[in-house]
């Protein structure tokens, strides 16, 4: 996870897992976010909590260019301001009603969310294609031990012999979101093999964590 004094990026999801017109939950060190893509394809990330009644916005729905809460249909723009309160159709919501938003970046098939204001862009993943994301109930050390590699400054771990592809890590408390990447030229067979190898590595990392072999 590249960081500097002002902020850093967390890889939270793969582009393919967030089609236009949908919202998904994502975890960042700054808290849970509702990550959504408008029908026109614009990405946005807001706090995962509607300020009206505290409902998780990631359970909501995307219509056009707005994210709506599933509870009362309050809608928010990419900038976080409230656009619509269905209970009061004639009302223009005051500027004070808004959700906190985070900067989002998308490159090479990965979506990144900023904590703070990072000075640079997220790292590029040249020659690599994202395959899938999986949650591992283990910390970074257990994952590195299981994968047989060390994390690079960009958050990448080369798995031993490359069979499990390259892992891009987003660590959290006690659990880690792993994005499995393969070489751009990997065929279907190799991709399925990398997905299966990732499952095996997850089992090993979680066993290591459970047995307390690594912290």
């Amino acid at each position: 996870m590249p960081s500097d004094t002002t902020g850093f990026w967390t890889p939270v999801a793969l582009s393919a897992d967030l089609p236009a017109g949908t919202v998904i939950p994502a975890r960042t060190p700054a808290g849970s976010v509702a990550l959504w893509r408008s029908e026109a394809g614009r990405l946005a990330a807001s706090a995962d909590r509607c300020p009206h009644r505290g409902m998780r916005l990631s359970h909501g729905f995307v219509r056009g260019e707005a994210l709506s809460c599933i509870y009362h249909g309050w809608s928010y723009a990419q900038a976080g301001n409230c656009l619509r309160i269905p209970a009061h159709p004639g009302l223009t919501p005051p500027e004070t009603i808004r959700v906190a938003i985070h900067e989002v970046a998308e490159a090479d098939g990965v979506i990144w969310v900023a904590a703070g204001v990072p000075a640079s862009k997220p790292p590029r993943l040249d020659g690599l294609t994202p395959l899938r994301s999986l949650t591992v109930l283990a910390g970074k050390d257990a994952i590195e031990t299981a994968a047989g590699g060390k994390t690079s400054p960009d958050g990448l771990v080369e798995t031993a012999a490359g069979a499990g592809g390259v892992w891009l890590l987003a660590a959290d408390d006690g659990q880690t979101l792993v994005h499995v990447l393969v070489r751009d030229d990997a065929g279907t067979k190799d991709r399925i093999a990398a997905s299966r190898a990732a499952e095996s590595l997850r089992r090993r990392a979680e066993n290591l964590q459970r047995e307390g072999i690594v912290q």
């Binding site: 009206h52 505290g54 409902m55 998780r56 509870y71 309160i85 209970a87 009603i97």
Partner: peptide, 23 residues
Amino acid sequence: SILENQIPRLLPLDPGMEIPTRA
């Protein structure tokens, strides 16, 4: 499924925590 996904789980009585309207 709504009730189990409200944050926080407890009912906030601090008026600054949630924004009500006339409804």
